[in-house]
């Protein structure tokens, strides 16, 4: 496992968010993530985990607090948002592949349109990425013709094709059949060995234990506990964490 540097990639301070219906999803959540670090966020459903990481690439707005991503302050300035999104990749629970495009075109769409790179060069990179996640032979197929596990691996490759400095995973294995979870986790574990910064919302304890540098527990829109995996799972300092671990272990 590579060691994270001291450079800050994500700095979220006391973030508060209300949904339009008045529900407060985040109540002063704070988190810092260093470059190259793998942070796993756990917590009961409805604790605001997904909402929290979705604020990191401005898929959700927030009303109070501040978030800085790779040195860019997230504000309502649209140019900032586009700049942040170029640096932050996201992998969704439901894959969200583009069903009308072939696997290869799913990967090349954004680099060609957003980064304005030549198509041939992007395609070469896309082939290499598909090779890396083990589905190069499916490049010409459409997402609907692949299994869930294959689709999620394509989604990871699609995010990587933009060469992001940060990858966010929003419950990447929750929608998968059990026998496909492993192939996706293996790809993620592989990535973690690289320099890339990862924030992963997941319930996969084994992944958190063996891959994460730090595990975070969120509850009721707040970060309750932050610790190294060893400490988090064996000797957590908060009652709330113990109760949560009792439920899932």
């Amino acid at each position: 496992m590579s060691q994270p540097s001291s450079e800050l990639m994500i700095e979220a301070r006391a973030v508060e968010k209300w949904y339009p219906n008045g529900f407060q999803a985040l109540r002063g959540a704070s988190l810092t993530v260093r470059r190259g670090e793998v942070v796993v966020i756990m917590g009961p459903s409805g604790s605001g985990k997904s909402t929290f990481i979705r604020t990191f690439n401005a898929l959700e707005d927030f009303q109070k607090g501040s978030i800085t991503v790779d040195g860019i302050v997230l504000s309502n300035d649209l140019r900032n948002i586009d700049a942040v999104r170029r640096e932050v990749g996201m992998v969704f629970q439901q894959f969200n592949l583009f069903p009308h495009l072939s696997v290869l075109d799913n990967l090349t769409l954004a680099p060609v349109l957003v980064r304005r790179r030549p198509k041939a060069e992007v395609e070469k990179q896309a082939w290499a990425l598909l090779e890396r996640v083990g589905i190069a032979e499916q490049a010409g197929k459409y997402p609907g013709q692949l299994s869930g596990g294959q689709q999620q691996r394509v989604a990871i490759a699609r995010a990587l094709c933009m060469e992001p400095r940060i990858l966010l995973f929003d419950e990447p294995t929750s929608a998968l059949d059990p026998e496909m979870v492993r192939e996706v986790l293996e790809v993620m574990q592989n990535l973690a060995a690289d320099d890339i910064t990862m924030v992963v919302v997941t319930h996969e304890v084994k992944f958190a234990r063996h891959v994460a540098h730090r595990v975070v527990l969120m509850a009721d829109g707040e970060v309750v506990e932050e610790a190294e995996p060893e400490v988090f799972f064996t000797n957590p300092s908060h009652q709330r964490t113990r109760r949560f671990l009792d439920q899932i272990l």
């Binding site: 586009d82 999104r85 932050v88 990749g89 996201m90 769409l109 954004a110 957003v114 699609r158």
Partner: peptide, 9 residues
């Protein structure tokens, strides 16, 4: 959301 998170306007 997927398109926006890839940086598409």
């Amino acid at each position: 959301e997927a398109a926006r998170s890839l940086g598409l306007s």
